[in-house]
């Protein structure tokens, strides 16, 4: 039940406990307990809306930064990643395989803002050997949700 519940929450975390219980064929109490437990365990980290910011304002920008890191002595990837994660400007941090080490998604009010943050905070960090900044121009899909489609149901109103 837990995995199905997680899938359901991932898709729509605004369903009521009763609705989720009905949909899963489970008791409301059991669903509530499972959610509590997974929150405590840190499996569920939060509940957020997926927003197409372009439709409200266009001023925020974000960028994907490739970080190359040379782990030294006590400062491995883990420590660098944790430090980077602490900045409120940083949205996501991933350890990568391949040509570079960390992907950092940074958001800011303007291109300038983001560039400044990268130059001042990330590039200067000990163990960070290089950064490459890629600005996001447009978002088409976010957390499994397509932002570009018009959500039109082109089926008729009735068919047999």
């Amino acid at each position: 039940m837990k995995l199905k519940l997680l899938k359901l929450l991932y898709k729509n975390s605004r369903l009521s406990l009763e609705e989720m219980a009905t949909m899963l064929g489970a008791e409301t109490k059991a669903v509530a307990a499972a959610i509590d437990e997974m929150e405590k365990e840190g499996v569920i980290r939060g509940y957020k809306a997926v927003i197409d910011w372009e439709r409200v304002d266009n001023t925020n920008v974000s960028a994907l930064i490739e970080l190359k890191v040379t782990p030294k002595a006590a400062l491995g990837f883990e420590e660098v990643a944790e430090t980077v994660s602490k900045y409120p400007e940083v949205e996501s941090v991933y350890l990568m395989s391949g040509g570079y080490d960390l992907t950092v998604i940074v958001k800011g009010k303007s291109f300038h803002d983001v560039a400044k943050f990268v130059a001042k905070e990330l590039a200067t960090m000990e163990n960070v050997t290089s950064t490459a900044t890629h600005f996001v121009l447009r978002r088409y899909k976010e957390s499994d949700i397509q932002l570009c489609d018009r959500n039109s149901d082109d089926r008729g109103l009735y068919s047999l």
């Binding site: 149901d153 089926r155 109103l157 009735y158 047999l160």
Partner: peptide, 26 residues
Amino acid sequence: PSGIRRFFDLAETMSEVISLGVGEPD
């Protein structure tokens, strides 16, 4: 003719119809 024709015509004239009427996947 199919029994739903009438409803179909009526619904076409309305806005904001919430349909549970179709027999095909979304």
